[in-house]
Design a protein around this nucleic acid. Structure first.
Length: 298
DNA sequence: ACATAGACCTGTTGGC
DNA sequence: TGCCAACAGGTCTATG
């Protein structure tokens, strides 16, 4: 499911109920997701207070007053749902759309929170169970196996043409695959890699190192691509992410960036680039769908 | 060191 | 209508 914009949207939805809230009780309904939960998971969380809810790439990081950090990844189908004001076990009558639709068999972790704004429950639901959670001391985060190799964030101004050119230098793989590699840029997934390449007018099949040359053409391409990545991620965050199948805001509402897709899931449609006569095609690269316009993406 | 398959899961969809 | 193959916002692990 979620790429960086969706995770950031989820984070913003969780902040009001999670930050400065005490975990009064935690339910862990199975021993594992993609990986086993860390030892004494429930005991290490119950009674501690969440001091900050941060994000790194597609990971949510709940900093605790115990000195540990709860690391959470949503995999392909993970979602969080907030129900404010409810006591443990309490039924709520105003069940939102998502409340009714979600399959309770896949509610794997439930946080019962006691915060400045009152009580709330936060439920983690994940049908495919590709998500996972880990706990680490805050000082150990840089060495954490999930976080240590992550590349640059595509938010803010750090990612520019020069940096991107350096990251792609010598890379003998497709440009699309290089963008999906979390060691290069952390947070891009299949949708936003496709969209960024469309915005930049670069073919996903192009060799990654061809966007890195020290010559003028390579520099020009890497600048265009860096700008495209930053803009598509910023636009998607502003739209609350993309809701195709699983992604929902924590209150059950939908993101709407899917309406702004130019390439993703639009095979057969005319290319939206002004003056372009091409049509979007779907190809498969390293086992995953790529959508692009073969006319204006070179 | 680096780059590509395979694996992990469940649910939905489209074609016959 | 029913069945089944293909596919889905990801990434760790093994293999070349």
């Amino acid at each position: 499911m979620p790429e960086l914009p969706e995770v950031e949207t989820v984070r913003r939805g969780l902040v009001p109920v999670m930050e400065d809230a005490r975990i009064a009780k935690l339910e862990r309904n199975r021993p594992d997701l993609r990986f086993p939960f860390p030892p004494r998971f429930k005991a290490r969380l119950e009674g501690s207070t969440i001091t900050a809810l941060a994000r790194r790439a597609k990971y949510l990081l709940a900093h605790l007053d115990s000195g540990e950090v709860l690391i959470m990844h949503l995999g392909m189908s993970g979602s969080f749902h907030v129900r404010a004001g409810a006591q443990t076990g309490e039924r709520v009558a105003d069940g939102a759309y998502y409340e009714r639709d979600r399959d309770p068999r896949h509610d794997h972790v439930v946080f019962h929170l006691d915060g400045p704004a009152g009580r709330a429950t936060v439920t983690y639901n994940d049908p495919r169970r590709f998500g996972f959670m880990d706990l680490a001391a805050v000082g150990d985060l840089p060495q954490n196996r999930f976080l240590r190799d992550l590349g640059v964030e595509p938010t803010g101004n750090e990612l520019d043409g020069v940096l991107l050119a350096g990251l792609l230098t010598g890379r003998h793989t497709s440009l699309k695959a290089a963008l999906l590699d979390q060691k290069t840029i952390a947070g891009l997934g299949n949708i936003y890699a496709c969209e960024a390449l469309w915005r930049a007018g670069l073919s996903p099949r192009r060799l990654a190192r061809s966007v890195a040359g020290k010559d003028g053409a390579g520099t020009e391409r890497s600048s265009r691509l860096a700008e495209a990545i930053r803009s598509v991620i910023a636009d998607a965050i502003e739209a609350g992410g993309s809701s195709l199948r699983d992604h929902r805001h924590t209150d059950g509402s939908l993101g709407y960036f899917q309406h702004e897709f130019a390439a993703y899931d639009r095979d057969g449609e005319p290319c939206r680039k002004p003056g372009c006569s091409g049509h979007i095609e779907r190809i498969v690269q390293s086992g995953r769908s790529t959508f692009f316009c073969p006319v204006c993406q070179r």
